Computed example of a mutant assay.
Amino acid sequence: MNLRTRRWSAAAASSVLAAVLAVAVPAAPAQATIIELTSGHVDVLDVDHVAGGPIVVRVGDDTGSTTVYRDPSTVVFAVPAAANVAVPSGSAWAFLGTGGYAYVLPQTNTAGLLWAGWDTTGVASGALQFNRVVVKLTDVQGPGGFSVFTASGGTPTVLFDSGNGLPDSLNVNRNTHAHVNWGFDVAGTYVATFEVSGVRTSNGQTVSSTEEFTFEVG
């Protein structure tokens, strides 16, 4: 073999090896862009379902000029220092911890904070039995208690509370758009897991979707 042949053989072998490695080692998947929502209207759980289809749970982001539906895994909900409030006295408020203060995203629209709730208007009429979904809080990872509640006349109604055992379940009618209070006992990062399920009217089959929602508090 002459020198030219040896050089060509080495170059060819190198090209073949590079091609094999390119096939054998797949490119790393692109990382999703994380969006932090800081203030304005947002539906933490935006639920959609049509007859025969899956239950779809997304974040309905209305913080900008137009609505954007986002994968919950790409969203962080900011709960800033301005959300830190004194916990009212009385045993009815004990679910917000024993520190005297808690962080709360309020059920009323408040400047500088997220106005957070849920929306089931995307659930088709008659697609699910009783025209409702079951929203279940199955897990919370964080430094303190997490709760969802309403308040009227100074009296709270607790809908979900990680401090007294999970899971907690709530029946929500289709075509509901509601705002609630989101409470956090102390500052830190919380990951709340919600499962949304329903029973198909057509065949009695249960369909569900489970998503994690991240809140950065303090």
Rank of each mutant, 00 (worst) to 15 (best):
N2T: 13
L3H: 06
L3N: 09
R4G: 00
T5D: 12
W8I: 07
W8C: 12
A12Q: 01
S14I: 02
S14G: 14
V16I: 15
V16S: 03
V23I: 14
P26S: 05
P26I: 08
P26K: 04
A27G: 15
A30E: 14
A30F: 09
A32K: 05
A32F: 01
I34D: 11
L37C: 08
T38E: 15
S39Q: 15
V44Q: 14
V44A: 12
V47M: 13
D48H: 10
H49W: 03
A51K: 15
G52I: 11
P54V: 06
P54S: 13
I55A: 10
V59E: 06
V59H: 01
D61M: 04
D61G: 08
T63F: 01
S65E: 15
T74Q: 12
T74W: 03
F77N: 01
F77H: 01
F77K: 01
A78M: 07
P80E: 12
P80F: 13
A82G: 09
A82L: 09
A83Q: 01
A83C: 06
V85N: 07
V85W: 05
A86V: 14
S89I: 05
G90I: 14
G90S: 09
G90D: 12
F95I: 08
L96V: 09
Y101G: 06
A102Q: 06
Y103S: 01
V104K: 04
L105M: 07
P106M: 11
P106S: 13
T108A: 09
T108N: 10
N109E: 11
N109P: 01
A116I: 08
G117F: 06
D119K: 01
T121Q: 07
A124C: 02
S125M: 00
G126D: 03
L128I: 12
Q129D: 10
F130K: 01
V133P: 02
K136Y: 00
D139C: 09
V140C: 10
Q141W: 03
P143I: 13
S147D: 02
S147P: 06
V148Y: 11
T150R: 14
A151F: 02
S152W: 11
G154A: 05
T157H: 04
T157C: 05
V158N: 03
D161Q: 07
S162V: 05
G163P: 07
N164P: 00
S169I: 09
V172K: 04
R174H: 12
V186S: 05
V191Q: 06
T193L: 02
E195K: 13
V196M: 10
V196F: 12
S197I: 07
S197Q: 05
G198H: 07
R200G: 15
S202M: 03
N203M: 11
N203Y: 04
G204L: 12
T206L: 04
S209L: 07
T214I: 10
T214Y: 02
E216F: 09
E216G: 09
